[in-house]
């Protein structure tokens, strides 16, 4: 890790391993469905046998690459709560780091879709007056997400600065 994305002070808080698990599951299910469609479809159409085999190999290679990307990406998510601001870093390929001062937060969202609920995770989204602020932490354990939201909200109210 280069110093550009070093943690501010202590260490980065990682997101839940359930995030990678959820995305891996989605990827695996998607691959299986696609493989079935390709094989059954091509065989029904009477294509030569080598064609579905070739496509299956390509599909598996893509899935394997996706698996690695998901793993690396999930490992790159991290956040650090400090006294007056929150640091978030993400992206294994397109790396990014966001600093959001608590005093600039307008509101904090916690979202959990049906899939995320099944994996007992939620994402926390910080909003400032700027639509450009992309401060989102996905894949937090549900309890941690609620704790973070409450802490951020109370800190935001305490330190709120006018526009």
């Amino acid at each position: 890790m280069d110093d550009l994305f070093d943690p501010p002070g202590n260490d980065w808080q990682p997101v839940s391993p359930a995030l990678a698990r959820m995305r891996h599951t989605v990827l695996a299910v998607g691959t299986v469905v696609a493989a079935l469609v390709v094989v059954v479809g091509l065989l029904l159409l009477g294509a030569p046998v080598w064609l579905p085999v070739l496509l299956l190999v390509v599909l598996l290679a893509l899935a394997a690459w996706g698996w690695v990307v998901v793993t690396r990406n999930a490992r790159w998510w991290g956040y650090a709560e400090r006294d007056e601001d929150l640091y978030i870093k993400h992206g294994a390929v397109f790396r990014a780091l966001v600093v959001v001062p608590y005093g600039r937060m307008q509101y904090v969202d916690v979202q959990a879709g049906p899939l995320e609920q099944a994996f007992k995770i939620a994402s926390v989204h910080l909003h400032t007056a700027s639509p450009g602020t992309s401060a989102r932490i996905p894949g937090l354990p549900a309890a941690e997400a609620a704790r973070l939201r409450d802490r951020l909200t109370s800190l935001g109210e305490a330190q709120a600065a006018g526009l």
Binding site: L4, V93, F94, V99, R104
Partner: peptide
Amino acid sequence: ARVQSLQLHQGP
């Protein structure tokens, strides 16, 4: 005094 948030970006 008017900064909302700061971001650092680095592509491949």
